[in-house]
């Protein structure tokens, strides 16, 4: 509802991470910036830790109109915007610089705009690093080491296919059960970015972390299109500016938390492996080939050309 007395617009942001995470801190920074720019007429309330739902559900809440903003990984967006599948395909970016070049290019901007027919406003990309394998009993130096290993994957056909192409047995396990599943040997390993590997304490069980960096799936800041349309042009400009500032803040905070996470797991005795990535890139070539004549395939060529 509207508050006619004070005329303060409240933006409610939900996310699934804890308050130590760089994303939460970037949202707090966004809140402070937008309050500053708007002279206190826009306030931000943050709901961390999946209080309001998981990522897929919060996207629906934006569409319903009971939540204003959320941060989601690009992968749950695939169910809404098929083009987002592109990020789940392994080794389409050469390195982090190439990744950001693509996100800031017309490709990234177009993808962000493609959420609009789905009643969403794509505000910005946040850094979520690259995902790599971690394992319990044996180190992973090459795809051959993955043979026969049960690797926990995200619940998406592309993620399942990626692990299969690399030789592992892709096993869907819910995030909540993963720590115990690793511990009891229901799965032999999993994959995630360094801060998640560290913050989930999976490193206590899985003592080998192999930085093969197979996928780079960005986080995306979304706003309900209904909320966006209710903002004045001036308010939209404030939100956009504050969001751009928070992106720079978050990218830096992410780099720092990645470095810290790796340092901490190393200090705890985890063996961090820097494998020869060309072996992995080679292994997913058939995957890329099979996509050649599809829309996604065309996009991959475009990305590789950048």
């Amino acid at each position: 509802g509207t508050d006619s007395e004070s005329k303060v617009t409240t933006l409610r942001i939900g996310h699934t991470l804890d308050t130590q995470h760089s994303v939460h801190k970037a949202m707090e920074y966004f809140g402070a910036r937008v309050a500053e720019l708007s002279g206190g007429t826009i306030e931000v309330k943050i709901y961390p830790g999946s209080q309001l739902g998981n990522e897929r559900e919060m996207i629906e809440l934006l569409q319903i109109g009971s939540l204003s903003m959320t941060k989601v990984s690009a992968s749950p967006l695939e169910g809404f915007v098929p083009a987002m599948k592109i990020f789940s395909i392994p080794y389409i970016f050469r390195d982090n610089a190439h990744f950001w070049t693509v996100l800031n290019s017309h490709i990234g901007k177009t993808l962000l705009q493609e959420v609009e027919p789905f009643r969403l406003k794509g505000l910005a990309y946040y850094d979520a690093g690259s995902r790599s394998f971690y394992s319990n009993n044996k180190p992973i130096h090459s795809p051959a080491d993955l043979a026969g290993m049960k690797i926990r994957v995200l619940n998406s056909p592309t993620a399942v296919r990626t692990v299969r192409e690399l030789g592992g047995a892709a096993t869907p396990v819910s995030w909540g059960e993963l720590y115990t599943a690793l511990q009891q040997g229901v799965v032999d390993g999993a994959e995630n970015n360094p801060p998640s590997y560290y913050l989930s304490r999976h490193y206590e069980i899985a003592r080998y972390y192999s930085l093969d960096e197979h996928t780079s799936v960005p986080d995306i800041m979304l706003m309900s299109l209904r909320t966006w349309d209710n903002l004045s042009a001036q308010q939209q400009a404030w939100v956009s500016e504050a969001m751009q500032d928070s992106v720079l803040f978050q990218r830096q905070a992410w780099q720092q938390s990645t470095a810290e996470s790796l340092a901490k797991v190393k200090a705890d005795g985890v063996e961090v492996i820097y494998p020869d990535k060309t072996l992995f890139v080679e292994a997913v070539k058939p995957f890329h080939e099979s996509l050649r004549d599809t829309e996604v395939g065309a996009l991959i060529s475009e990305i590789k050309a950048l």
Partner: peptide, 24 residues
Amino acid sequence: LSIDFTPAVTTIAQRMAGGLDSFA
């Protein structure tokens, strides 16, 4: 008291289904 009727009832419906959408 704080959300319009349609988004309110749709959100409740979504949360009721979402509450059951758990492997555990």
